[in-house]
Computed example of a mutant assay.
Amino acid sequence: MNLFAATLPNFLGGLAVLIVGGILTWLLAQRAGRVRRYTLLNSAAPDGSPVLHLTTRRAGTVIRRDVGRGPERFELTKVQLPDGTYAAEPMDRYV
């Protein structure tokens, strides 16, 4: 009985670390797999509406899209626009 009482705090501490680690891993996995809508800045579809791009990739990723003038590169950002989408900045236009 004395051995059980001496090891109980270590066991409970280890169990708490495993539970917290599991919860954090699950939360990060849920966040990483979320689909985000990006508005390709300074680009318009043939009908004049903004060009949108759906992806699960993180901010900082460079994508290539054809927006009417040929393929262009856009960098995904963390900036959220008023309509709820995120901004994708053109990389080749300002060179």
Score class of each variant (00 low, 15 high):
67 V>M: 03
50 P>V: 10
80 Q>T: 02
53 H>L: 15
2 N>L: 11
41 L>C: 06
7 T>R: 14
87 A>Y: 04
92 D>P: 05
1 M>Y: 04
68 G>F: 00
9 P>R: 15
55 T>H: 01
60 G>C: 08
54 L>D: 15
7 T>I: 15
70 G>M: 08
51 V>A: 02
65 R>Y: 04
74 F>V: 01
79 V>N: 00
35 V>N: 04
88 A>C: 08
43 S>V: 03
84 G>F: 02
72 E>L: 10
63 I>Q: 09
87 A>G: 06
28 L>M: 12
77 T>F: 01
75 E>K: 11
16 A>C: 03
18 L>A: 10
37 R>P: 01
53 H>V: 11
61 T>D: 10
27 L>H: 08
26 W>G: 00
35 V>M: 09
85 T>C: 07
77 T>M: 01
78 K>L: 11
1 M>A: 14
9 P>A: 14
16 A>M: 06
75 E>D: 00
4 F>Q: 06
35 V>D: 05
83 D>Y: 01
69 R>C: 10
20 V>F: 12
55 T>A: 03
16 A>K: 11
7 T>D: 11
53 H>P: 06
27 L>Q: 14
7 T>A: 14
46 P>A: 11
29 A>R: 11
43 S>A: 15
11 F>N: 02
30 Q>D: 10
23 I>M: 09
67 V>T: 15
31 R>C: 01
76 L>D: 05
68 G>N: 01
53 H>Q: 13
49 S>R: 15
22 G>L: 12
3 L>W: 14
87 A>L: 05
6 A>Q: 13
70 G>P: 10
53 H>N: 11
81 L>Q: 08
19 I>S: 10
64 R>N: 06
83 D>T: 04
73 R>G: 00
40 L>Q: 06
68 G>M: 00
24 L>V: 14
56 T>V: 09
94 Y>R: 06
28 L>N: 13
5 A>E: 09
46 P>W: 03
72 E>V: 02
17 V>S: 13
73 R>H: 04
58 R>S: 11
59 A>W: 03
56 T>E: 07
34 R>A: 13
85 T>F: 03
41 L>W: 05
10 N>G: 15
67 V>H: 03
9 P>E: 07
11 F>I: 12
24 L>N: 06
91 M>A: 00
63 I>R: 10
4 F>T: 06
1 M>I: 05
8 L>T: 07
55 T>Y: 00
50 P>R: 10
16 A>H: 02
26 W>M: 05
32 A>Q: 15
58 R>I: 00
34 R>Q: 15
74 F>A: 01
53 H>C: 14
